[in-house]
Design a protein around this nucleic acid. Structure first.
Lengths: 352, 352
DNA sequence: TATTTTTACGCAATCGTTCCCGGCAACGAT
DNA sequence: ATCGTTGCCGGGAACGATTGCGTAAAAATA
């Protein structure tokens, strides 16, 4: 089944002109007489002509499209970022192609190859948890492909980056738990191969230290797939509750980890916030409707998408190679709700 | 900033062959000697050659890509459908381009034009609430573009369609509310210009009638934007609670309406399920963690994406124009949780 | 040895568009 | 009358890949 579109040739033939003349008339070239222009424009309008972007891409080696790679669009944070990206892209006449890695390095590479082969003018990327080898990103970047990383950034590659203030977000959350009287504060975090994993863990540790608490390695649980797999979540929670001294609060450092953690705590029959406090990074709009309503650290997702896109467009439209790259850090916001507001007075750690 | 890729010409020049020979060697043509093939393949591998899909699209007028238009990827239902689409598409060597209408007919049209001009081989579409004019869809379809509608389908256009059993889902939900003892059951629904709006409303009405309850027009509230706008949600809820006889249960017929309704009820200080019962369509994974946990009708979203894609691929790969179109109806599933399980015995309608 | 067949490759058109050249009128200046 | 300008437009190459057709050399046949 084919689908035939109107081309510049059809116009040329119908009007007894050459394709060059039609092309120029459509682009409003000074070389074409007003009458001819009028003729062409009106006829083009009439037969509903639209230039073929594929032919243009081939000719111009650009597509006025930008590619996005995220792990999951089902994640509220990422869908909000994408909306931010779209808003800026559209205002500037760019289209957006979305692809998902599902936290698989292999799929990420395939998406990357697809997007570049489709002549994307630039890429906005948040890397997958699995990715260890950044050579393909580097190669692309070295060969001049404009790339902006956001959220999960790649330190080794020098380009524009956009992140939330992960350290401060984690620091604030942890400090808040301490202030609420929790004593044994555990954390669920991404692998530290991920920038967000590293930074949020650092914030957690710093907050503990600043409050005179010695970080305990056994209270730090890493989730390779960021909570995407139920199994690793169970595994992490089991490890925490097998401890002689179980935690009395948890700081979860990513969207899926936060809600996954609540689910796990509930299924263990634990009462949040009285048996255990919970706070975490989350951009879900439902957290305030949860039982209990969740205290969360929220990232300025939409804004991050906007900023990333503005930076990318700067790169794309730069006349000279850009060497002066920047990393924009946007503030997080803390929402305090029930999940950390225990009335129980905690003097000693709870012993299981 | 440009990004140069390896072309077939580079290989031809380097090996002292013509581009035709290289092309044929790469496609393993019988016309090329084994030695030459080996030479070409090895060199292509070495310099990491990948055929330019844009050039191919231009030549072949197909792109091995399928386009998706949904209203919001942030909606769990749609992101699950997209995952289903991706899984089948990838297995068949197709790529997927996602675009969002944000419930705007204008954006939907722009996306449609973009996707077709990008030589999509086929489209999978769930129309926006705003869309009244289907002429563009029809034109595209008449001109041979393979299209599969899902969820919000267009009755007037004859092509493959995939839907959940909306009537039965709504019927079951409403019947469940009746069985739980609720007497004045209201509904929050999409506009009936939308197929899902129509079918779910019909299911609600049929269930009431079958249980000896006369449907009350004032208990039916329509949301033009499917709950995307907070204002229309407020408006609908105000209308319901301004009634002399306020409802004692609500059936919400879409994802955003369901969670939005819960939010509205809570902000009014009403207790669910005791002051008012709530059940609704939702595919969010968080509904069971909400306060109260929500009774929901769940659609087989992933599967719907799979089925829609299989049907689309059939259309795309058909040798002759297809005229025998089908509408697949997949069953919904009901999950009964706290939001409908009141202990209060209801004999008379609650009077405000 | 002469002729036919096969093998293995190149040429050129094509997809839709842009853009560098070049051409041909008409006109004013010399 | 001739020359240079200007205005307006067409021819054709290019972007990267495929493919029908043509053809030289080698192989097979008469």
């Amino acid at each position: 089944m084919k689908f035939e579109a109107v081309t510049i040739k059809d116009i040329a033939k119908a009007l007894g002109l050459s394709t060059s003349t039609v092309s120029r008339a459509l682009r409003d070239s000074y070389e074409i007489s007003p009458e001819t222009k009028k003729l062409v424009l009106e006829y083009a309008e009439k037969i509903n002509y639209h230039p073929n972007p594929i032919a243009l891409s081939l000719k111009e080696r650009r597509s006025r499209s930008i590619g996005i790679i995220v792990c999951e669009i089902a994640n509220s944070y990422f869908s909000q970022v994408i909306n931010g990206i779209e808003s800026i892209a559209q205002n500037n006449g760019y289209n957006v192609i979305i692809s998902q890695s599902h936290e698989s390095a292999e799929r990420e590479l395939l998406n990357l190859q697809y997007l570049t082969s489709r002549s994307m003018d630039g890429l906005i990327i948040s890397v997958s948890t699995e990715t260890r080898d950044f050579s393909y990103f580097r190669e692309l970047h070295d060969r001049g492909m404009p790339i902006v990383f956001f959220d999960r950034i790649v330190d080794e590659i020098e380009t524009h980056k956009v992140i939330a203030d992960n350290f401060k977000g984690a620091y604030d959350a942890t400090t808040h738990l301490v202030k609420c009287g929790y004593k044994r504060i555990a954390t669920l975090c991404n692998t530290t191969t991920l920038s967000i994993g590293k930074e949020r863990l650092a914030g957690y540790i710093a907050a503990l230290k600043d409050n005179g608490i010695t970080p305990d390695e056994s209270l730090i649980q890493y989730c390779q797939h960021g909570g995407l797999l139920a199994a690793e979540m169970d595994e992490a929670m089991n490890s925490l509750f097998r401890l002689r001294k179980v935690p009395d609060a948890i700081f979860a450092s990513a969207d899926k980890l936060t809600t996954g953690c609540l689910r796990a705590l509930k299924s263990r029959g634990l009462s949040v916030p009285d048996d255990i406090g919970l706070i975490g990074f989350s951009n879900s709009e439902l957290t305030e409707l949860l039982e209990p309503s969740l205290s969360v650290i929220k990232q300025p997702a939409f804004e991050m998408g906007e900023v990333a896109t503005s930076l990318l467009l700067e790169l794309i439209e730069a006349r000279h190679p850009v060497t002066n790259f920047q990393t924009k850090v946007l503030p997080t916001e803390m929402f305090i709700r029930q999940s950390t507001q225990t009335k129980k007075i905690r003097t000693k750690p709870v012993i299981s």
